[in-house]
Simulated assay, not measured.
Amino acid sequence: MHSDIRVCSNWEHAHERPVYTLGDRCPKCDAPAENSAPPPFDPTDRYGEYRRRARPDGPD
C-alpha cells in the first residue's frame, strides 16, 4: 500500500507531534519524509495466530 501523505522521518526528535506533508521533505525541519501508510498485511506471518489469540477480543 502506498499513500500520498508522508510524515517527517525525524518527528520524534524534532517535533512535538508528527508533521505530515505531500512533499518529499519536511516543511519545518527539511528532514526526509517517509510513507505514512502502515505495512501491508502478510498472510505468511508466522506469529499472527498467537497475536490474535493474545488479543482480548480474539478467538477462544
Rank of each mutant, 00 (worst) to 15 (best):
V19L: 04
Y20W: 07
Y20Q: 01
Y20K: 03
Y20R: 04
T21I: 06
T21H: 03
T21W: 02
T21K: 00
T21N: 02
L22N: 08
G23W: 01
G23R: 04
G23E: 04
D24V: 01
D24P: 02
D24M: 06
D24F: 00
R25N: 08
C26K: 02
P27V: 01
P27E: 00
P27G: 06
P27H: 03
K28D: 14
K28Q: 10
K28L: 12
C29R: 04
C29D: 00
D30M: 07
A31K: 09
P32Q: 10
A33L: 07
A33T: 05
E34V: 15
N35W: 04
N35C: 07
N35H: 09
N35E: 08
S36I: 05
A37Q: 05
P38F: 12
P39A: 12
P39Q: 10
P40K: 14
P40D: 15
F41I: 11
F41H: 08
F41D: 07
D42W: 03
D42F: 05
D42G: 02
D42H: 01
P43A: 07
P43Q: 11
P43M: 09
P43C: 10
P43H: 13
P43I: 12
T44F: 13
D45S: 09
D45R: 07
D45Y: 07
D45T: 09
D45P: 09
D45Q: 13
R46H: 01
R46S: 00
R46P: 00
G48C: 06
G48F: 01
G48K: 04
G48T: 00
E49S: 06
E49G: 05
E49L: 12
E49Y: 06
E49W: 05
Y50V: 07
Y50H: 15
R51P: 06
R52W: 05
R52P: 06
R52N: 14
R52S: 10
R52T: 10
R53E: 11
R53L: 09
R53K: 15
R53A: 15
R53D: 09
A54G: 10
A54N: 15
R55G: 11
R55L: 15
R55S: 15
D57W: 13
